[in-house]
Amino acid sequence: MEKPEKLIVDGKRLDGRAPDELRPLKIEVGILERANGSAYVELGANKVLAAVYGPREMHPRHHQQPDTAVLRCRYNMAPFSVEERKRPGPDRRSVEISKVTREALEQVVFLKLYPRSVIDVFIEVLQADAGTRTAGITAAAVALADAGVPMRDIVSSIAVGKVDGTIVLDLTNDEDQWGTTDMPIAMVPRKKLITLLQMDGHFTGEEFKQALDLAFKGCEQIYDAQRQALREKYAIKRGNKK
């Protein structure tokens, strides 16, 4: 796609959204049979799966911690998830995203309850349209809850950015590519604590504050959707084996 002349026309974005509007969001809980917990998130054209295994025995053994469980995260993109085939396996980007994802989630998980164990979080991006790391965290947090892992709260995540000089919520790939700024963020919504923050592009100090405001609003909506998804699963199928 060529760079469009304008990404925002009459206050509407290319896909018709207002600047502070999320893409359509769908969250499903417990869709994988073998995992201890799982979740599937669609955010616009993003399709992301997350699975949680554990707490289980840590292998290799020398990675065991005597006083706590270890949280391991793997963010991975399917080769067919992007326009040009992505070579399978970890690259520098996915190694970094795996690291910041773990750091975004670790805050809320009561790891001390499971010494010598590991909790594995696997995030697979099946289809990508910008915001996959945040959709991955949103899915992983729900999967952790589905697995029954004790947590202080559910982590919610979304990206904000700047496009044509306007602060916008939840960028699409076109907006990410042709816009000025992308700022993924994750937070513990009840206490409004930020556990992931990255940014590239350009913000003045004032724009940064505006972007934070919008990110808080966006995460609240994500948080509501996460809780609603969990409620639906456990309200309707109560008593059933998952």
Partner: peptide, 24 residues
């Protein structure tokens, strides 16, 4: 000019909004 071009949070702790503004 004091504008931000990149940010990265690290570590397992968190920042509040006020702390981020102070950090800036």
């Amino acid at each position: 000019d004091g504008s931000i071009c990149a940010m990265q949070k690290g570590g397992i702790g968190y920042f509040s909004r006020e702390e981020l503004e102070q950090a800036y």
